[in-house]
Design a protein around this nucleic acid. Sequence first.
DNA 1: CTCAGTGCAAAGGATTTGCATGCCG
DNA 2: CGGCATGCAAATCCTTTGCACTGAG
Lengths: 150, 150
Amino acid sequence: MADRPGAPHDLHATAAQRLRSDGQRYTSNRRVLIDLLGATDHPVTIAEVLTLRADLAQSSVYRNLAVLEQAGVVHRVVATDEYARYELAQDLTEHHHHLICSSCGAVADFTIGPKLEESMAEAFARVGEQTGFETDHHRLDLVGRCTDCR
Amino acid sequence: MADRPGAPHDLHATAAQRLRSDGQRYTSNRRVLIDLLGATDHPVTIAEVLTLRADLAQSSVYRNLAVLEQAGVVHRVVATDEYARYELAQDLTEHHHHLICSSCGAVADFTIGPKLEESMAEAFARVGEQTGFETDHHRLDLVGRCTDCR
DNA sequence: CTCAGTGCAAAGGATTTGCATGCCG
DNA sequence: CGGCATGCAAATCCTTTGCACTGAG
């Protein structure tokens, strides 16, 4: 689950390309963020980023993550606490879901089988037809207690 | 989907009982909140509550919803925007999921078939065994654009 | 050179808290 | 009566924004 499809180079190349398509530059700060997100196996809070890379300015991190999200390179994850979390866009990693600890707020990744994903996709298609809702992506999270908090 | 299992009386009785078990009173303000949540078919923001019932003090709404959540009567729903939303606990209504509009933030309810729910429950049990994560509940949301925003 | 990106500090906005008062038990 | 609930206003805290400076193209 920690392995990413494609080498780091591809990751940066893809990020650069998507940013360019969006009229944005791939600056060193943005590269640092991508490196950082590519090295973790869970969505990261802004606070974590600032701790891991104390040289980054808070406002730049907020702004750059917003730019990267806009360009479709990273994805904003909403857990249950008030902190925003970011991960690489799932087409740059692999499709997965989140285990959210309601006690400490930790977020971990997990996957379910492709069969189940398919069944869900079919169900979502039906819902879309019936309601007129145009689905962009789905969110399947388990909320509970992580091993540390049990 | 708008129908709730059990008459309103049961709802209040259950709410009162759960609060009592939690050492809390079922005050008139709390009753108003339950009435309001029972009357809608989607999770409600604090702002909506304050608009619908302008006589309620903002701080009391925040505090009472927290108390009600603690007692297991209401559930806090996290969408994609920064607003907290609340709905009745799903054992007081029926199990459902959310359509979240990433454009206007609207949240609507929908359900999937019991078969699929079962398959998911099985998958979650497996994940729990493998990771040691103790699941309290799951969250399955579709993020996209509602009919108004398409 | 030009203009987007950066960093610092100040502002914004949803949510929380302190405190005096009111009311249920 | 005692203690929790309430309401108002002030405080918090994550996040956003203003502004002057720096650096890439």
